[in-house]
Write a protein that binds this DNA or RNA. Structure first.
Lengths: 148, 148
DNA sequence: GCGCCTTCTTCCCATTAGAAAGCTACACGT
DNA sequence: ACGTGTAGCTTTCTAATGGGAAGAAGGCGC
């Protein structure tokens, strides 16, 4: 693991200036997991039925969704990443994966209570994004035009 | 752009089932920016002086930090990614970059009010991470031992 | 039997992050 | 005046990661 080695070397270099922010900290690992690109979207999809109406504050309520349903809704996720992300979420106890032995095998994913509490956090983040979206866009345009 | 094409094809496939979750939505772009790996850490670093004590709830107060200070604190970020992330944050109006003409040129980064409000969100996320860290770890171990 | 549907996996390639070196600019010491 | 050292940033090369498409259980209808 070259990364850990490099980080540790740099840590010795700096002279133990941090107790946190270090890669080994579990909180940071969890933050990395949370801040995965698709995790947020899957949580938003599972957490609210109609997750993106700006007027309805994600009030659709949590519901179970099937694999293909998620794949359709997310509209840009590859099947590989969807499966991979769902597995990691299941591993972390954020979603449950239930195989329903219907005519073709159906798999439904649902948020656990833990995932639901995380979804609450995500909702706040999404609210922030929707509230400050135009601010950020304005800053971005100003920055881009400033350096022509 | 094959990705957009694929997403659009899938969109037509599903029959306009989403107005959100689509890649072009600015809210999603913003969410992607927020959920970048280093953005959260830089915000945490700039937002609180001693950002990771579990007892002190990130109360160090926001302060400006120099480039090398950030590089030391984050302890695992490459200089390239640090510069890149700081530039994008500056572009989005979340941090200010001020060049101080000291003996060697010093650059100090500071959160804007917009970045500070985002840091408030991040603080909630970090609190969640610290609160449920052990839950997630327990689930993870259980999952790993279950499939031997 | 043949094909199909749903979920998931495997292969290959494009994109991106990371590591290390180099580059610029400028004050300072000599 | 010339090298040196420091801070910030850039470049270059390589390893890891993500996306796309094809394909594999596994059970059903035709």
């Amino acid at each position: 693991m070259a990364r850990v080695t490099a980080a540790q070397r740099r840590e010795q270099d700096a002279g133990a200036g941090y107790n946190a922010f270090v890669e080994a900290c579990p909180s940071r690992k969890l933050l990395d997991r949370i801040s995965n690109k698709w995790v947020a979207l899957i949580l938003a999809a599972l957490g609210s039925d109609d997750a993106h109406q700006p007027d309805s504050a994600c009030a659709g309520g949590p519901r179970a969704m099937r694999y293909s349903e998620l794949a359709r809704l997310l509209a840009g996720v590859s099947q590989k990443m969807l499966t991979q992300t769902l597995r990691s979420l299941e591993r972390d106890g954020l979603v449950t994966r239930t195989v329903v032995p219907t005519v073709p095998v159906t798999v439904s994913y649902e948020l656990t209570d833990l995932g639901l509490s995380l979804y609450g956090m995500m909702r706040g983040l999404k609210a922030w994004a929707e509230a400050h979206m135009d601010d950020v866009l304005a800053h971005r345009e100003a920055y881009d035009t400033r350096l022509a």
